[in-house]
Amino acid sequence: MNFLMPKDIVNGAMLPRFSGKPVSIIGRVRDLDANGMHFTIESTDGLVVKIIPDTPINSPMRGWIEVSGHSTGTEIEAREFVCFDNEDFDCKGYNELCSLLYLVPNAAS
């Protein structure tokens, strides 16, 4: 799986709906497990989501991050990450995007 694969852009509340499907989510890194086996993010809608990377993380992670992987309904088995260095992120706008994407059928196709 890579970033060019089609995936659905979601927020925390939408993970169960996309269970078993490739998704992309944006959140703020909260805490990283000591051996780098998993970490949590706070999603744009204020939920804590557990991320399980396919390979252990060995570099420090902080700030806003986009995570791509499979939704298990509550967690994400992650394959790729994009770290952003901006402090400000338009959470309201992102949540609006998530909601609009699935309000309009085939909006993104």
Binding site: D90, G93, V104
Partner: peptide
């Protein structure tokens, strides 16, 4: 102002649907 412009566009989409 991307935040503001985005909000405007989102509102337009809402109006459309």
């Amino acid at each position: 102002n991307y935040k503001e412009y985005n909000a405007y566009l989102a509102k337009k989409i809402r109006d459309l649907i």
